[in-house]
Amino acid sequence: MAMIELEDITKRYQKGGAPVVHALRGVSLAIGRGELVAIAGASGSGKSTLMNVLGLLDRPDGGRYRLDGREVSTLSAREQAGLRNTRIGFVFQAFHLLPRTSALENVELPLVYSDRTDIRGLGQRALELVGLADRVAHTPAELSGGQQQRVAIARALVNEPDLMLADEPTGNLDSESAADILATFEALHASGRTIVIVTHDAAVAARCPRRIRIADGRVVEDTRPLCAGADPIGPGAARPALQEVR
């Protein structure tokens, strides 16, 4: 059983009197545990909408979304918030770090909305994992772009999610920092994490073992489609704990 199963997902937008935009016109795909997948496409192709649906930030108008076999698109807002907290980690193009707030406090933010204990320890370990153990007290303004994005990755990791969703994670970075961030994702993938990177950058997509291309709200190319039951690691695989990575 795949970790993520989308079946005929559709999503329409209409703003004011503007014509209806069909952002997703029936997307079906499956992603297995431990995969590193690029979702590529031009701007306006629907890839950001797909990412919002995958991250439970937006509800599809039609279709089914099963996470570990459980239908999640129809859950209540509160239950979806709980799933975002415990099972999904987000990385954004614009980092979205809180200003005037230390790297450590930024990383701890998801734990505010969880019932985890040892917040300090988890935050520290997540920062160590991205190589920023010596920057815990720095505020975003005191960090380079690449370092800010690594703080954001640590924040996505801190609650040990099953799935990491990265939306154009290198879009705001110079090529050296971008390579650094991609290497971080590859290391996390090597340690068993499931990562989906949404990008319009062909070079970024090329570094992922599996590439799904979206155009006009449909999947037009999938380099390694997952067949049901062909999970590379297997449904019973344990989630890697933070300590085991690196």
């Binding site: 930030l57 918030a81 987000f90 933010l109 924040r155 609650n159």
Partner: peptide
């Protein structure tokens, strides 16, 4: 900030 908080699990 509000969007981020919602993304990381705030209702």
């Amino acid at each position: 900030e509000v969007g981020l908080r919602r993304a990381v699990g705030a209702t």
